[in-house]
Write a protein that binds this DNA or RNA. Sequence first.
DNA 1: CGTGATCTTGAAAATTTTCAAATAGAGTGG
DNA 2: CCACTCTATTTGAAAATTTTCAAGATCACG
Lengths: 228, 228
Amino acid sequence: MSLACAQCPVRDSAACAVLEPAEREALARAGRTVDLNAGEMLFAAGDENAACATLVCGALKVSNCDADGTEHILALLHPAGFVGEMFAPFARHDVIALAPSRLCVFARGDLEAALAEYPRLSGALLRRAQEDLHSARTLLALGTRTSAAARVAGLIAGFAQGASTSPCHPAARFDLPLSRGEMAAMLGLTIETVSRQFGNLEGRGAIRRHGKRGIELVDPALLHQLAD
Amino acid sequence: MSLACAQCPVRDSAACAVLEPAEREALARAGRTVDLNAGEMLFAAGDENAACATLVCGALKVSNCDADGTEHILALLHPAGFVGEMFAPFARHDVIALAPSRLCVFARGDLEAALAEYPRLSGALLRRAQEDLHSARTLLALGTRTSAAARVAGLIAGFAQGASTSPCHPAARFDLPLSRGEMAAMLGLTIETVSRQFGNLEGRGAIRRHGKRGIELVDPALLHQLAD
DNA sequence: CGTGATCTTGAAAATTTTCAAATAGAGTGG
DNA sequence: CCACTCTATTTGAAAATTTTCAAGATCACG
């Protein structure tokens, strides 16, 4: 079944936006739509037939389990984001839905053919890969901070930015996209430490918690100062 | 001065290897060669005129200083590697030579023109960006391990792989490319903790130190086990 | 053979993890 | 609508690890 690009919510922002309508339809016929519920896996580390995908709506995490079973979250993916190994023969990480999600999935061979046929697509994916690289490095700088307080404060500040509609101001109130355990897996901390840091931040008046996921930024300046 | 591509040691492995000889010469005329001594900076975070570069020989680090002055090393660059912001208006991180290095540097505008003119170049840079992304995520998984022992052991194992000529066996003996302080800045630890972990690894018989930088892998299996 | 920088080592202080248990929330079936 | 159950979160206290601060030791180099 071909994809309805005309109604795709990311038709202007995903990598395929650089294609002409006819080209895009041709690419769409090679792909397929996949829907995932929260917690479902798109593919697992080591999968040989791992494909590539553009996220249409929802949210994904890219994660990795080390030898002792600890999960490490390496990236979060938002709509219009692209995930998958274009050049490696197998998937290097798990890709799991954080929320009900829809994806536009391509077999690696079909995508390679599309890259050869539509060179502009390489440019669009290059731009996106550079953004992903920057995100990974930002997360790396966050996860290697020495104090747990700075890591958690920085993560919350980042989520507040991401949840905002404006590019320069953080959202005053938003829902965390991750559980405590998932935040711990991003930052290299334990669940308990993350939870305690939330408590500290609330105690100092930087944030206020509303239920499990709701966060209100009471003092954004203080939050940034604690994030260092 | 134009670059001598014919004698370039990375002419077959760098991104420009996908170009025809004539195309490559044209690109080379737009670029310039830059030599750096160890410790010299190619460009700093925030530089507006930051350029892009292919590393011809030597080694670079990509790093970032947070508010309290702590350095975080986000990536290491080896010959044929590519560094720089192709799409952002300024450099996001510092780029510093770890060893005497030679680079082939292009102004962002010239590189953009080259991408438009030689679409294959996008594909080559895309492939390289995916590799960089994978390296960043590998480092992220390493830096967010909870124990210092696992982080240091994993870093040494990675260096042993990189120093090897064979892709599947680590080098039995090699020199560390970084100082203790730089390793600490990669892993989010202090210099002292890194030093003590080296001492522990030697005490347990996993490695032997030879001078400050020399490492001999006495028991690679044990090293990997400790790296978990 | 100094000299300066890097590395190692020691001991106390601070932080984080671990283990254990209590609390809060969401969803289900009665 | 309520009681119940299951999971996620919070909290507590002890144990383990890491940082900090302070000296030494080592090494490269002029």
